[in-house]
Structures are given as C-alpha cells and as structure tokens.
Design a binder for these strands. Sequence first.
DNA 1: CCGCATCGATACCTTCCGGGTATCGCGCGC
DNA 2: GCGCGCGATACCCGGAAGGTATCGATGCGG
Lengths: 289, 289
Amino acid sequence: MRRYGGGMETRELRYFVAVAEELHFGRAARRLGIAQPPLSRAIRQLERRLGVTLLERDSRSVALTAAGSVLLREGRAALDAVAAADRRTRRAGQAATGGPGLVLATKTGASSELLPKLLGAYAAEPDAVPVEVLLCGIGEQERLLRDGRADVALLHLPYDSTTGLDTEELITEPQVAILPAGHPLARRPHLLLAEVEALPGLPMPRWPRADGSYPDGPGPEVRDHAQLFQLIALGRTVVVLPESARSLLLADLATVPVPDAPAVTTVIAWPPHSRSRALAGLIRTATRL
Amino acid sequence: MRRYGGGMETRELRYFVAVAEELHFGRAARRLGIAQPPLSRAIRQLERRLGVTLLERDSRSVALTAAGSVLLREGRAALDAVAAADRRTRRAGQAATGGPGLVLATKTGASSELLPKLLGAYAAEPDAVPVEVLLCGIGEQERLLRDGRADVALLHLPYDSTTGLDTEELITEPQVAILPAGHPLARRPHLLLAEVEALPGLPMPRWPRADGSYPDGPGPEVRDHAQLFQLIALGRTVVVLPESARSLLLADLATVPVPDAPAVTTVIAWPPHSRSRALAGLIRTATRL
DNA sequence: CCGCATCGATACCTTCCGGGTATCGCGCGC
DNA sequence: GCGCGCGATACCCGGAAGGTATCGATGCGG
C-alpha cells in the first residue's frame, strides 16, 4: 500500500509544459485556451509550492532554469503516463462492447512480410482479440506506447530506441542496397556501405524527424516508401534497407546485399507494466513465428 | 510539439487508487483525509467522464471491473511519474545549493565490495557530484527509481526485475551456500542447490515482500543480513548468496560453492528518460570498474 | 420479523480556487 | 518620447471540491 502525498496536479504540469515549450506566456495561454494572467499565476504557485525557480523571466524573454528543464522532461513523461491511463481505461471499458482489443503500431511500409503472418497467426489463436494496426512515422512508436495510443509495437533495431520498453526479438535480417535496375552497381554481387554512401550524384534520402522537420543534407526529402522507390527508379537517390523490403519493390529496381551494414532486428515491444492477457497472447504468438 | 487534451487530474487518480486498494469508500476516504460523500461523487464523475464503469458496487461490497484494474495499474504508474517529476524538480532546484546530486538505491548488505569501490572511483572523477546512498529492502528499488526518490540503483539479476529500466551489467558472480562453521556439509568442496534446499531442519529463510508481509513456509522470517547470519550461526537456517556476501560474514560461518545456482549479475539501472550529466558520469565510472 | 448496524448515494450548504477583465510596470524600437 | 509588447498585479465571479445531515438498501442478531 502506497501513499501519494497531495502533489502536483496534471493541470499545473500541462500549463508548465506549454510555457516551457513556447517560452512565451501569451502564446502558451492561447494554446491552452485560457487567458494569460491565470497562467502566470499558476506557474508562480507551482514555483512557490516546489520551492524552486522554473523560469527566468524579464519582460522581454523567458528562459528555462536547470530545474525547469528537469520538470519539462519529467512532466512530459508524467503527462504521457496520465494520458495512457486515460486511454487504456477507456479502451478497456469499450473492449467488452466490441472495440479493438489491442492496438499495434508499426512503421508504414516496414515488416511487410512479418506483419500479415503475425496477424494471421494470432487471429487463429483460440482467445484472440481484434487487433487494430496503427501505421506511423519514424520514431513515433515509442511515443504511442508511452501515451497509451498503442499497446504494442514492431520496432527495428538499431534504428529505433527501446529504452524503457520490454521487448522480444523476432527476426534479424541483413540489409540490401536498392538501386535502379539499370545502374552499373546493380549487377555487383555485393556492395560496401561506404560505396553506397559515396555514390556520386546519389545522396541518401532524408527522412522527417519526430517534429516533422528534415535534417540538412544533399539528399531528397522523402515521406514514405512509395515516394522513396519512385525517386530511386528515377535515379535520384539510393537507400539501404532490410532484406524484407524486397517484397514491396517496384519492377525496375534491383537489390544488392550490403554485408557490412548493421543487421536489422525486428522486435516486438510493449510498455513494461502492461501485461494483459491479450497482449501476452500476441507476444507469445509473435515469438513462435 | 504535443497537445495534452484536458484529461484526468492526479487528484482523481489518487482517489480512485485509494478506493481500488481499499475496496471500501469509507476507509479510502479516511485514508485520503476527506469525507466519504465527496469521494463517492469524485469516483462517479471520473466514471462518467471516462464513459466506463470502474467499480461494481452494491451496498455490501465494492469490486473492480476489468477497466478498473486497468486504471489501477496505469494510475499507479502515472502517479509515480508525477511524484517523480515533483521530487526530481525539487532536487534539481536544491542541487545548486549543495544538496545531493545523485541518489543511489541499493539493497541493504548487498554489493558490499562493489559499492565502496564505485563511490570511491566516482568521487575521484573531476566533475563528480555528491552521491546519497539509499539502503532499501528487497524489490524496493524499482519503485524508488520510478517515483523519483532515487536516480540510479544497483540491482541483482535474476532476483530483481529490470523491466522498464535501462541497465548496464557490472559484475557476474557465482553463488555460495552459507552454513554454520561446524556443519557437516561445510567441509564439502561444493553443494548442489537441491541439496541445500532439502537440508533437514534447515529451511530457507523467508524475506518480506514489498508490502511487508511474509510468504508462507517453514523457514524463519528475516529482515536483514545481520539477522540472517545470526540465525545461520544458530543452526536455524541456511541460505544461498552471491560470493561477495563473504565479505560481511561472521567468524563462525562457512561458505560452500553452489555451482548449479544461477549466477548473480549486478547491474546499474536508471529510469530510461533521465540522462543527466552527473548520472552519465556515474554510469561511465561504474562500467569501467 | 423487527430493530440495528453498515455502507454507499443523495441533498444541500459553504468555501475557495481557477479563470476572466482591467490595468500597471517595464523595456524596446520607430 | 511615445507606442507597443509582455509579464505581473488587482479585483471580481462562478463553479467545483469538501463538509454535514440524511436516505435507502442489505445483512445480521435477537
């Protein structure tokens, strides 16, 4: 049995996170749908109750203190946990009335072979529940698991981080370079990573980050695999992907093994404390594939 | 940038967790320091807003629904995260004024060789901060990390669970049986686990669980290593411990290797998202020992 | 079968706090 | 110097949280 001394309210956390992200009380207030004065007051109260200065403010600028950055990081995690509690409880309530039993998050276009096999095998289990598949962008999965929008995800090491998640390895596969069918290197038995990266006139594509912005660089900005493959066919870029990406290839593309590229391991991941009956079943099915 | 739609307040979560743990509105209200009617109302409001029945109540008993158990589990995690945000922010504010920079949790009596070495080596680092050591009971460490009372912990696999934590392995050591010096088996070169467990009249001791209660069984209840060793010396029990426990042994005790007992790995563990400069330094020092 | 105790729900009142409007104080730029 | 942007302050209002009294149901002992 535990005691939770009357601590911070999530409202205060939401307010602080908004201000800390905007570094501007007016904008933060607008984003929160309240007026600016109550927001100022709320932050001051929070600072007084914590006995800590969170924001250094003069009338021209607002900046985070060291304690403020800690609360920004921890506060986001806490808000995610609260949001997860909310969503998962709602879903648990509706599960009885036919809603999806599990939400699985995976990267768009990835695991095109594994995923149908997994869903098929699981659906055949005696106590299977409906599985909703959530296709999402790069690096989005961890967030979805944390805030309760997903119960389980397929991640790809070493690209995705699994810190704070429980995982089981499913398959490991080598990577291949994907080239236009007519490219001179397309007939080579294999390529080295360095060779692929140094291909003149064929810079690696740039994927969007979590916030939607693109890193700097020479390569084209791509948003999904369809776009990517078309650009490769046009001879504008090149990419190294796990072997299984072959299954969604266009006709005029060729693959060449890249033995020194790190092998990609597909893992099934879930938040550590949530071990529902249905989730356990799905994981068991996955590891048996 | 993320939006957190106006969701649950921590007060509601605290209330629900109290009721779910007590399964009794009156007791829960007393525990929370409020009257019973506002508590009933708060739970009803929570249920209405979630659109989910959390508790099945007739006027004689209260029981959790499936959704209720989900909210109990997720709510505890969320409250821990909020408590962690609170505590870590407070500490970050006081850190400037000389408070402890890091709080390390370890089991009382364990790692008696490793811990001083680690603290010594870290203190010698150029940018070391003060480290407070928190001695705690079995299985308490995960909780301390989760709710922010500790920043880092020493855990012992396979006894402790590391789900949801980031870890680095430090050392792995075999286990030994600890016997009274005069015991007939004390002169054997090694013992099998089965032999130790079957010792007539020497049942394994029982350790308290997280909630303070003891599992059933024939062995004596022990609370710490001093108590345990005294009981062994008295010939009332026997135990299998990692080799390094030798360093805190009494004179009239003997150790015998137990090669088939699982090796114990000491790991340093920390919550996944909190990677402060000081913490990174401590972990680096630890892995270099 | 009838009090009686127990426990959650309801009714009603009070207080306090979250939120709004108006305004101030301050620093910057035209 | 004057306007303007921004955060802080002052003040008011409404609603929600909390308390007291009471009800209604249920199980139990006499």
